Computed example of a mutant assay.
Amino acid sequence: MHQFDRAFRFVLPVAAVAILATVLSVGWLTQPDRFAKGYAPEQPIPFSHELHAGTLKMQCQYCHSGVDKSRHAGIPSVDLCMGCHKVTRTDRPAIQKLAKIAASGEPLPWQRVHTLPDHVFFDHRPHVNAGIACQSCHGEVQTMKVITREMGMRMGNCLACHRDPHAALPPGSKITKGAENCAACHR
């Protein structure tokens, strides 16, 4: 056996494993916080989903009205908030700040909690129209004073549900699987 044969038998597999480990580690460790589970950016106004969706039992679609008509759920406008807060809790500093923003005509600069990388396409419509509850992906928002991402925005989480959606679907649903082809989400 030639001396280089032994080196190649040992060096090549070790080098291949080292390169693969490096690529996977860099990909995992450099993931921006905005894609990670537990992400909760500071918002311009303290908004409690626990109060609005929990105690007051407001439906998600009241504020996120585009969720069944658009690929984006949409962020509520200041005018929508002011529909109630012209008369409700007007003595609160956060509501007074909201009223000033409304009077200025400027949009409220909410920070997105659930974001995906630019190369990922997601459409809320087929999920909502299939009866999948918002809580399946967004967590029990009706119990959160501060919205925190409960599910990591990793492809594996989406694929797990697409492969076995029964836990997320309402009883009696005829759907057995979601799309698994790459082009369904990567466009």
Rank of each mutant, 00 (worst) to 15 (best):
C161P: 00
A168I: 02
K37E: 14
I147G: 02
A53Y: 13
P126V: 00
R163M: 02
D5W: 13
T22N: 11
G54A: 09
R92L: 11
C60Y: 12
A18K: 06
K100M: 06
K69H: 14
L12N: 07
L98T: 07
A99K: 10
A168N: 03
Q43P: 03
G27W: 14
R154Q: 09
A133V: 10
F8M: 14
P109G: 00
T88R: 08
H186G: 05
R34W: 07
A179L: 04
R154W: 11
H49Q: 10
A179I: 01
A53R: 10
P13M: 05
H186L: 04
H2C: 12
Q31V: 15
T143Y: 05
W28E: 15
K69P: 07
L56C: 08
L169I: 04
A16V: 08
A40G: 10
F8K: 13
R154M: 06
H124A: 09
M155I: 10
P44R: 02
T30Q: 15
R112K: 05
D68W: 09
Q61W: 07
H186R: 09
L80E: 13
S77H: 06
K177M: 01
P32C: 10
W28P: 08
M1D: 15
V141T: 09
P171S: 07
I19E: 02
E150C: 01
A102V: 02
H64N: 08
P107C: 03
A133K: 14
E150I: 00
L20F: 13
L51M: 08
H127T: 06
F35L: 13
R149V: 01
S48L: 08
T90E: 05
D118W: 11
R6T: 15
H186A: 05
H52E: 10
G27Y: 14
K69N: 14
I132D: 00
T148G: 03
K69F: 12
L56N: 10
I45Y: 06
A73Q: 09
A94P: 02
A94V: 05
P109S: 00
V141K: 01
L29T: 15
A94M: 07
D68H: 12
D91S: 12
G131N: 07
H64T: 07
G66T: 13
R163C: 00
Q135D: 13
D118H: 12
P32M: 09
L29Y: 15
P170H: 06
L98Y: 05
I95K: 06
T176K: 05
C137M: 00
V11Q: 08
W28R: 15
A36R: 15
N129M: 12
C158M: 04
P117Y: 07
R125E: 03
V17S: 05
A40E: 09
G131D: 06
G152Q: 05
S173P: 02
Y62S: 11
I75D: 07
A133S: 12
H49G: 07
V113L: 02
F4V: 14
T143K: 14
D118Y: 10
R71C: 04
E180A: 03
Y39R: 02
G27E: 14
C161T: 00
Q61K: 10
D79H: 12
T115P: 01
H166I: 03
C134S: 10
A21N: 11
